[in-house]
Design a protein around this nucleic acid. Structure first.
Lengths: 205, 205
DNA sequence: TGCCACATCGGCCATTTGGCTGATCCCCGG
DNA sequence: CCGGGGATCAGCCAAATGGCCGATGTGGCA
């Protein structure tokens, strides 16, 4: 019997997962958590074989950080990421954090059950349409932006002008332009609008 | 006994909703649909009292259009919108389309059950933190953009320059600028970045 | 110690953008 | 048949943006 811990901030989703997982007779849900913090605590005491974890967990720590913390446990559960979105950066982030795989929420229940079985067996589990992208991501990893650049990017995405960003960060416009130039180069774009688009598309922000 | 039709593109969520709704003894799920089209067909034959409908329905028609179509049936079911996001434009769109209410997915199961009961009784059902915003929205309704303006806005959000948009739409840059000027005025912004932000924030795109 | 990444700043210049005014055409409804 | 909204276009001009060159200081790491 493989034991499973559910992590999702939506009670309804947890109920649904519990229903489809407990329906078979080889898997058993032994706990539910609504936040990453709760998941880490529960995993320590319940020692599940597999943790099924949403990437978006509301206000607390996100699924990637939760994954990293879970993998640091001893014994470490297999972590299977389950989410609505397929942003590249998050896929890679989750894999890097030690996730055993990544499934989209719109798949059929049996796919989820099968994914849990394979994760428990130590296999990698990737939604078919994601595998290619993950491998592609491995070949050309996402550009690494510095903390400051991410910060500027966030302000950019809120529609701020260079002047506004400069005032907010207590630097000169020249500095903001410098950061932007670096961001543009790294993202391979040539306008703030496209930078915003790429950043959102890849999950950078 | 109040009958309910579930509409959500995620099988897992449908399972969860079915579990929490069927748990009581006054509500009964009589059908599930994964798309808006399917929902409209099923509602016509099953004649549910209440339709519980996600706003995002994958590739097909969205929840708002589905709501409008459902409300045009005879007898018309009460439509309760259930979604993850609380974008203003969508709240208002759903209400205008005849929805009986709007709940967020992260609420507890009993809130959903109670919402269905109240919707079946003909009440309006609004998540508490949304009611104020809806009323505010009533006072200052979202600007109405034309089809063409929305189209330009979408290209804008993909980071296109005026020249690129012009080429794509087979018009001159002057026309694109004209549309943009109107968009900016209606959204009360003065830069493309902020227009993108507001449009995404309010669910316009 | 020297190197390198990072954050900070400045100047110059071409391009893009945004504000303004005004124009034509078409369709639809009173 | 006229009015109005929508889509199309034009020119002018100020401001913001983006590309390019360069510079300084600081902290970590080999």
């Amino acid at each position: 019997m493989t034991t499973v811990l559910l992590v999702d901030d939506h009670p309804v989703v947890r109920s649904g997962l519990r229903a489809v997982i407990d329906a078979g007779d080889t898997l058993q849900v032994i706990g539910e958590a609504a936040t990453g913090e709760e998941a880490i605590t529960l995993a320590g005491s319940l020692r599940p074989d597999v943790v099924l974890c949403d990437l978006r967990l509301g206000s607390g720590i996100d699924g990637i950080r939760t994954t990293a913390a879970l993998r640091a446990l001893d014994p470490a559960p297999a972590v299977l990421i389950l989410t609505t979105f397929d942003r590249d950066a998050e896929v890679l982030g989750a894999i890097e954090a030690g996730a055993a795989g990544y499934l989209l929420k719109d798949v059929d229940p049996e796919v989820i059950v099968e994914g849990i079985r394979r994760a428990a067996a130590g296999d990698m589990v990737l939604a078919p349409d994601l595998a290619a992208r993950v491998l592609k991501g491995m070949r050309s990893p996402l550009p690494r932006l510095t903390e400051r650049e991410i910060e500027v990017l966030r302000h950019l995405a809120r529609g701020s002008t260079n002047r506004e960003i400069a005032r907010t960060l207590f630097v000169t416009e020249a500095t903001v332009k410098s950061h932007l130039a670096h961001i543009f180069t790294k993202l391979d774009v040539d306008s703030r609008s496209r930078a915003i688009h790429v950043a959102q598309e890849t999950g950078l922000i």
